[in-house]
Design a protein around this nucleic acid. Sequence first.
DNA 1: CATGGGTCCTGAGTGC
DNA 2: TGCACTCAGGACCCAT
Length: 280
Amino acid sequence: MPELPEVETVRRSLEDLVVGKTIEQVDVRLPRIIRTPNDVIQFATLLSGCTIESVQRRGKYLLFSMPPYTLISHLRMEGQYSLRHQQEPYAPHTHVIFRFTNGEELRYRDVRQFGTMDLVTSEADYPKGLTELGPEPFDETLTPRLFYQTLHKRTAPIKAVLLDQTSIAGLGNIYVDEALFLAKIHPERSANQITQKQAEHLLVAIRDVLTRAIEAGGSSIKSYVNGYGRHGGFQIQLHVYGQDGNPCRVCATPIEKIRVAGRGTHYCPKCQVRPRRKRA
DNA sequence: CATGGGTCCTGAGTGC
DNA sequence: TGCACTCAGGACCCAT
């Protein structure tokens, strides 16, 4: 499940692999992946002849700059890119193929078919999820105070607020659980009950876990690989995600798994103090 | 407006 | 052994 560290790792690999290459032809095998334009023939036609100038990231979105267009790609759960020669066999679930003039192909595969692509000419046409994105976690304008104020406006569980991409961009289920563990905050605590001090610690924890995950090349839980087909290494550093039943690395209490905001949620019942129960 | 639940999808895992 | 069922979850849609 690619989150910010995985998308950033993919971005870096694609920067090496595809920048400067010119698209000759595009083959869309699964039209549902392409959201914009509506017509996949048009999607393919517009892209032919374009040269990839850069690959950027915003939140969990990849932005391929290929003037005059920008291709906005979201990997969702299991989207993957790889660079292959056109003569190599296609892996199952390959849905979009960008053939370059040199005979190589950038291939997009996605078992769950949740990923999306939008081809636009200006920011005015960006998909809603991208325009409504909150600040990047490493943006220096995201001060502890601003972060606290953002959280303070919300009554939902802190886990739900961190998963909401309009609060802060790029976090998903893995790194939210990890950051809350590091900050010793229970995932069900209401966001507006977070103190200034806790918000400050939480922001530090978010930046810390994301930094270390990027350094490790992301977490490979199930299917994630970067543009070179390489797995990440951060999964062995996870404290709580997927660790239910295992002893907490800090206090040895068994990690518990509950459901918060509709997501599997892992936490240490001793390190992350449960909020007061609201009872009718 | 904020919140929470349902939905999309396929493969892995579980239970009988 | 085989089958039915549940679960995994990011973003979007919709009802409350």
